[in-house]
Design a protein around this nucleic acid. Structure first.
Lengths: 132, 132
DNA sequence: CCGAATCCTTCACGATACTG
DNA sequence: CAGTATCGTGAAGGATTCGG
């Protein structure tokens, strides 16, 4: 085990492999947090691919597929295929995925309370580029 | 006001302008959350540019500068210049920035508890590409 | 119905060099 | 010391097409 790996394993925020950075890389991708929210809202029910797509306006078929498979790989989502023709594919959050909903909900709550303020401050700073 | 703006103002997760998405775009950039953590740990003390750089191993001068100015623009960080030669520039979290530390800490805690598990699940899924 | 493959554009980020 | 300017690279993600 390398020094870097040890540091990461200890949860060292300053390692290039720090777990927080790696988590943010995941939930920072465009559709991941929305997919988790939709699946969390439906839980413990499964949701079909097409239904997910309907509940995530703007997502392309490709990106939804990529996003979901990435979540499956991470063990946050399960994927169940009904062997019919055409196939039906069902997705559901795992326990791990559901647990991620909690910090994600905190981030969402902060965003809904404060992003308008950030927009306002941005507008002010744009209008007054330097210290007035 | 457009329909889309109304939806965003209501905190509609499914608007392209949804506040959560926009917040994640910010904290998802590589150095932002680390800068906030370092500043939060130091608060209410100010931290100089060079000191921040020392506490964020791996960050380039350019990216630290870009990151900090972006945070200032958002009103999450204040910037104070001592008019000396050479100049000293001090950064500190605002109240808004400090409030963001709370959900961020929740994300960090989740990451430190669960990312190792995600790595383990990834390894398993890599070894067994399809349903075994 | 679901998803893989390909092409293309955009942008975050790093390296480097330069300035007051 | 702090910041800016420029250039190059890689990766995200959108559009489209094909497949089982």
């Amino acid at each position: 085990m390398t020094t870097r790996t040890k540091r990461a394993a200890r949860g060292d925020l300053f390692s290039p492999e720090c777990p927080t950075r790696r988590l943010l890389d995941r939930i920072g991708t465009k559709w991941t947090s929305m997919a988790i929210k939709v699946l969390a809202d439906a839980a413990p029910q499964e949701v079909r691919f097409a239904e997910l797509r309907r509940r995530m306006p703007g997502v392309s078929q490709k990106m939804l597929s990529v996003t979901l498979h990435s979540l499956v790989r991470d063990g946050l989502v399960t994927r169940r295929v009904e062997p019919t023709v055409p196939p039906r594919v069902h997705y559901r959050l795992t326990e791990l995925g559901l647990s991620l909903e909690i910090p994600l909900a905190a981030v969402r709550a902060w965003a809904e309370r404060h992003m308008a303020e950030i927009d306002r401050l941005n507008a002010i700073n744009d209008a007054r580029p330097d210290g007035e």
